[in-house]
Design a protein around this nucleic acid. Sequence first.
DNA 1: CGGTACATTGTACTTTTGGGCAGGTAGAGG
DNA 2: CCTCTACCTGCCCAAAAGTACAATGTACCG
Lengths: 209, 209
Amino acid sequence: MEHFFVTPSGDLHERWLQAFPHAAAVSEFAGIGAAASAASRVIWLDISITEARKLLIDVKAAVALGWPVVVMAATPDEAQAFRVMNMGAVGYCHVNAAPEQLREVALVVEHGGLWMPPKLMQRFVALSMRVVPGEASVEPELNELTSRELMVAEQIARGATNREIAATLEMSERTVKAHLSAIFKKLGVRDRVQLALAMNNIPAYTTVN
Amino acid sequence: MEHFFVTPSGDLHERWLQAFPHAAAVSEFAGIGAAASAASRVIWLDISITEARKLLIDVKAAVALGWPVVVMAATPDEAQAFRVMNMGAVGYCHVNAAPEQLREVALVVEHGGLWMPPKLMQRFVALSMRVVPGEASVEPELNELTSRELMVAEQIARGATNREIAATLEMSERTVKAHLSAIFKKLGVRDRVQLALAMNNIPAYTTVN
DNA sequence: CGGTACATTGTACTTTTGGGCAGGTAGAGG
DNA sequence: CCTCTACCTGCCCAAAAGTACAATGTACCG
């Protein structure tokens, strides 16, 4: 497990080192993407002195790297927490959180969980109830998809183009199309837009009608 | 770490044992509360054959015990997931989840995290944004859209084709395209797929480069 | 070994998208 | 009246997406 701390200063906070002795500090995202290691990672994003405008860009850029992103704020704030989570972060904590807590957070996000301070978590869950959709979720029969088809479908779910998928999955664009045709047929959707929606449990209108 | 599986049958599912060899099965909550051990625990609630009415009671009872509760459903459902999370559960997965996944879930909830299948998690986060005081990811720029543009964007959000939009809004396909171009520019997305995702508050990865 | 499922890719074709260029109209406001 | 913005559209073009038909290789199963 590698821990990358993205911080403007470029220096590792003492507590971070206590939590993860082998942590690495970077001030640019490039430093992370470069090393094409297969090991799993956690990206820690220090936004303590980042202005709101740049925050959005930074979080998205971090998320785009493909590893779990934990945002560390100087003054935790509910709206900000929700905003960064919505942009794809999976963790939100204080920059000066205790080492033990950082390790807790790491453990959680590494295993697919979502972490934020208990109080916020509570608010978060409570708020989500107000908009819980009726039902009619169209959970697609993803089981019918073969392994490769599923990979393609997941990329579509994030808005990738055929070219990007081909590059990511290392296959030709033609193959991507072949898989897509199979997926459309199996899931009963007609194009990539509806597939993207279906993959995210959002009812699309032709699928329903 | 103790794992209590609350299941109507009273029997431990084979996979549960594979995940946690020392798991204990109980059919009544009383069996758990009795042992006043200081060790940390996880309560696994099997609701595969629980009728909706009793579900509420059970989840609350489990949560009341004071340890992290993971609900295991036979047919995972978005609305149900949100409902149980709102009642205090911190995990939601399939009853037949693989042992490795169960361990992942355990790891997450033991350390204060929230766990549910990735797809649900994404929806969960996206939905919470719709009510968060402040704004959602695309919500702000949505105000920049003119009335007609918004109508087009909403159709895209449901997977409509240009032809369908043209018919619905009674305009030519060319006009639909014109509006779309304007929308793409204003919202900073590159194509209809990403727009559809953005409209549903689902982070798409290339939105930032 | 034959059969089947999956993954892969090519050629070629049709449709859909996205957008440049070049206009039209109508309403609000100086 | 003039200008600006929103709205609408046609022609045309290039890129992307989706399909049809076809073929090759691999793995596994009875």
